[in-house]
Every structure is written in structure tokens, then in C-alpha cells.
Nucleic acid binder design. Structure first.
Lengths: 300, 300
DNA sequence: AAAATGTTTTTTCACGATAAAAGACATTAT
DNA sequence: ATAATGTCTTTTATCGTGAAAAAACATTTT
């Protein structure tokens, strides 16, 4: 086996959802942009849609014949990229205990366990190394540095430095910058979520990421923007395993975001700084309490 | 062909240098640590040394028979790792003009041109991507972002943020920390270089890196420490192609370093801050003047 | 018994090969 | 003439493979 056709399968599933909305599909290039794939893949998708009787396809005409049924969709897990599969397996191992700092990581073993080639695992580890959790020994194995309190402190130190700077840059943006509209709509989403927090509290993490990314982008600095990938990755997994008081935590965070947004809109740098610090402080606290480790590192 | 034996060849060359110093070689494990390779490689080296009549090898006894001649050494270029070869080729293309921003990078073409497999090129590009000069389009090619003025400004912005913080942390280190001794010996090296600057000015870049890495390490933050890799990489190539007023620039930098060191030793945070800022300002200026680009970005 | 050497096994590194996906070119339809 | 479709070519993603290098195990020497 060489390459899975998950790109096709994922695009096909997304394509099925388009059938509900229209009587006939647009042109091939248009579908390509819509689904984010090449025309080659679009044609493979159309071919199958015709085969399964979903559409009638003849050159430019692509008439919808019937609505897609649940069994028309490819199974969810066949649409994942290899990188996603490897990351999930790796993180499960890492968080499911038994992952002591200093432990060595074996490419071959990982590859066998996940059922993929070594090349993919190697590439994953190289990409993953920028998160600061693993390190390579020159022509030898990888070493796990562990998701420790020290790691969390180092991460949040940078995060705070970057976000304070980005927030200040954001507040200084001209009136006519499109980010203000983005901020307004994020504010609306926050208000909506605040009202429905009891039932939709788990929708927060996604909103959280969009909000912070918007702020970081104001820095106009690729290193700051890219660093948010590290934070996002950590918080993504953190949300999955630390469910304690999730509702309460998110409720507090939404309110902090709203205060933060208000401060940004005021363009008062002192207020922005205060609101930003307050939110980051509680975000750090949440992260730290979820790391079980008795002893605090020496450097406070 | 599968894997070159550059590890062996490089270790062999370094091993030859040991022959000058002793009558007989130490044990295999000891040689392994000394050369930074496994015992397997040590034994391959010893086998060849015996074959070429350099030593007499019988179990524990490894008697030196003669001094190594120049032709005993493997050629320099056979001791490079593939990663080094690829990086050099890539940077040469990137700096040798014709590398416009937005240009796309072709893995296969690069691999063919350098004469290596595609896997190695892919892995190199993934590793290299953290420098912020290239970016991957999801299941498609890489895009060159270009070594532009904007890049240099973003890089130096982070550098200044990190170094000011590290320098402050450094100055706050306790009296008995071993870094003060390191700083002292670096100071000596700087004084020595200052005296011989006329003839040894090109020894500065290596000293520069060691000095700044020492300071960054005081942050005790892996993200700050790792970020110096980006700076080091840029400066490494920058030094190679911008030779204008190299001697003068380095002379100034050495003096700035000495002032910076004095400030650190005084532990006066205000002085540290001032000396650090002054040096970083001229470093930024040097880097910026070497980038030919008329228009300055809008965000000043 | 501790440390070295001798031997075998495992892992890493790098390649060529192959299917999926993208992209380029030629042709046809509006 | 522009934009779509049809066809062919190139590139990317992934695997299995084999040599280099590391690591583990067994045996001998001090």
C-alpha cells in the first residue's frame, strides 16, 4: 500500500452535503475551490456520485437525482490524514500515563504499533519536535521530555509575552481595519455562548482558539503567530483530559474574554494590559492545576 | 545505495588525531564516548587502522605503530551528513538570487539536483520550516516566503524580546552559579580577540554565538533557547555573504559585547538593559542593511 | 565483580517504487 | 474569447527494503 485516498474520501463527504442545497452542481474548477482539492479529485468524486446514482453527470450538467443517505458517506475514520492518526496515537500514549520524562521513543516500535511506515512516523516526530516535548539525540533515538510543570511554565511565559504585545498592537490598529468587525462578531458569539453556557460549554475551546488567534495575528509577526500552534496543540489535548469543573472554568473564561474584548474596543492600553493579564493568569492557573506533580521546580 | 557511512568516516578522521598524542589507544567504550559514536563504529575504525598499519590491534592492546599521514584521512566532503549537504545546497540557491518570494519549491527537483532521495529532502524541508522562511501548502508544494526585510524585522523583534528577558535573568543569577565563570572566560576570549582583531576578525561569529547562547540559557526556557537556532542559522549565512566592512562591524560588536559583559557583572538591571539594547540595535542594523529592498513595509 | 571484548539483534537512515493527488496541456462547448 | 471538459504528465505521500550505526547480550580478561 502506498498512499491512502483520504483526501478524496473527505472531500467526497463534504461534497455530499452540497447535494442537499442545490438541484445541480457547479463546474469542476468551482467545486475544486469549494472543497479545497484539485480537479482530478473532483472528477473522482463526481464519478462515484454518478455510480451510486446520486447525480446524473454528463459534461457540464450535473443534476442531483436524490438526497444522500447516511450510508453514502465514507466512515469518519477513513477521512483522517496519516499525520492525524499518528498524532492521536502518540498523544494517547503520552497522556495515558507511563510516559516518564527521559523515556526514549522508538520510531520502529511506534510505526509497528500504529500500523504505518517508519517514514511517516519520522516525519511526524520532526514536525512534533517544535512543541518542545521531545528531543532528538544525534544519530540515535528521540527522548521524551515530558509534559511537566516546567514545560507548562515555560510555555505560558512565552504565551504571556507574546499575547501582551499582540494585544497592544491590536488596540493600536486603525479604526478602518477589518479586524474590528471580526472582533465584533466574536463578541456576539461570546454573548450567545454566555447565555447558553449550561448546555454548550464545550463549544468554548473552539471559540477560544479563534479569539486568541485573531489577537496574535495583530502582531504581524510570523513567529508569534506560529507559536500559537504550540499553545493550541497543548490546550486541545488538555481540554480532552481535564474535565474537572469544565463548565465553571469556561464560564469564567467567557466573561474574561468579554472584558478583554471591551478593553480592546476602548483602545485604552492600560485597560487592555490589565484585562489580558487577568485572563492569562487564570488560563495559566487552569493549565497548572491539571498537571499532577508534587514538587515545584526550583526556579519558582 | 541506502545510507552513507559518514559517521564512521568523520569519527575515523577525529580518531586519527588521537594517534599523535598517545602510544596506545584506550578501551573501546572509552573511545566511543571520546568520539561520540557507538562501539560498533569504534570497532570499524580500529579495524581500518589496523589494516592500514597505523596500529597493532589485539584485544585490549592497541599500539600506535606510526603517525597518520595526510592521505590517511577521508576527504572532508565525505564526512558531511546528508542534512548538511542538503541545507548548504538549499541555502546557496536561496541566497544566490533568483529566489523570489512566493516561488514554489519542488521536492523532486531539489532531490534530483542535489542527487539525494526525496525522503531526505522532505525531512529537511520539514525541519527547515521552523525558521519561518518556507511554508507548506496542504498536500501540495512548499512556498518560499523569501529572506525579506519583513522577515528580518520579525526575527529581530522576537530576538530583542527574548534577549532582554534572558539578560535580566542572567544578572539575577546567584553569585555561586557556574555561569559567572563561563562569562569570565568568554570575557577573556573577547579581550584577546579585541587585541588581534586586525587578523582574526572572522573568528568573531563563532564567539558571538557562544556568548548569546550563554545568555539565552539563563532564561531557563526551552522556547527561548531553541529560538536561538533560528537566529544562529540566519547569522551563519548572513556572515557568509555580507562581507562589507566585516572587520569594522566585528570590532564594534566585540566592544559592545565587552560593555554588555561588564553590565552583567555589575548586576545593575538598568545597565544590563541599556547595554543589551545598544548591542541588539546595532546587530539589527547590520542585518537590515544587508537586505536589498527598497520599500520599507508599511508597519514601520 | 567490574570492565573489557566478541557476537547478535534492533533501530535508524536513506533509497527506489507506486498509488493518490495535483497540475499542465489539448480540446470542446458556450 | 473565455471557460469548461477531457487527457496526459508531474509531484507528493507512503511503503518496503537494505546498509550503517546503535544497542543488547554473551563471553572473556584483569
Amino acid at each position: 500500500m502506498s498512499k491512502s485516498n483520504n483526501v478524496y474520501k473527505d472531500a467526497y463527504n463534504r461534497g455530499l452535503r452540497l447535494l442537499d442545497e442545490t438541484r445541480s452542481l457547479p463546474s469542476e474548477p468551482e467545486l475544486g475551490t469549494l472543497l479545497g482539492v484539485s480537479r482530478t479529485t473532483v472528477r473522482t468524486i463526481l464519478a462515484r456520485m454518478e455510480e451510486t446514482g446520486l447525480i446524473d453527470w454528463n459534461k457540464r450538467s450535473k443534476t442531483v437525482l436524490r438526497e444522500p443517505r447516511p450510508d453514502d458517506f465514507f466512515p469518519e475514520d477513513e477521512t483522517d490524514t496519516l499525520a492525524e492518526i499518528i498524532e492521536r496515537s502518540f498523544m494517547r500514549r503520552l497522556l495515558a500515563g507511563g510516559a516518564e520524562a527521559g523515556m526514549q521513543i522508538n520510531e520502529l516500535e511506534l510505526a509497528r504499533e500504529i500500523g504505518v511506515g517508519t517514514t511517516s512516523v519520522r516525519e511526524f516526530l520532526i514536525r512534533f519536535s517544535r512543541f518542545g516535548l521531545i528531543e532528538k539525540r544525534r544519530n540515535s533515538h528521540w527522548v521524551l521530555k515530558g509534559f511537566t510543570r516546567a514545560f507548562a511554565l515555560e510555555l505560558t511565559e512565552i504565551r504571556e509575552m507574546f499575547e501582551l504585545r499582540s494585544a497592544a498592537a491590536f488596540a493600536a490598529l486603525p479604526e478602518d481595519s477589518p479586524v474590528w468587525a471580526d472582533l465584533d462578531s466574536l463578541e456576539d458569539e461570546h454573548r450567545l455562548l454566555a447565555r447558553e453556557i449550561a448546555v454548550r460549554f464545550n463549544a468554548f475551546s473552539e471559540l477560544d482558539e479563534r479569539f486568541h488567534r485573531l489577537i496574535h495575528r495583530a502582531s504581524h509577526n510570523r513567529f508569534i503567530v506560529d507559536f500559537y500552534d504550540v499553545i493550541a496543540m497543548i490546550f486541545h489535548y488538555h481540554y480532552q483530559w481535564n474535565k474537572a469543573q469544565e463548565r465553571e472554568r469556561n464560564e469564567v473564561a467567557v466573561q474574561e474574554h468579554l472584558a478583554y474584548i471591551a478593553a480592546l474596543k476602548s483602545r485604552d492600553l492600560a485597560k487592555v494590559d490589565a484585562a489580558c493579564r487577568k485572563h492569562l493568569k487564570s488560563a495559566r492557573h487552569t493549565l497548572l492545576t491539571s498537571i499532577p506533580e508534587g514538587r515545584q521546580p526550583l526556579r519558582a
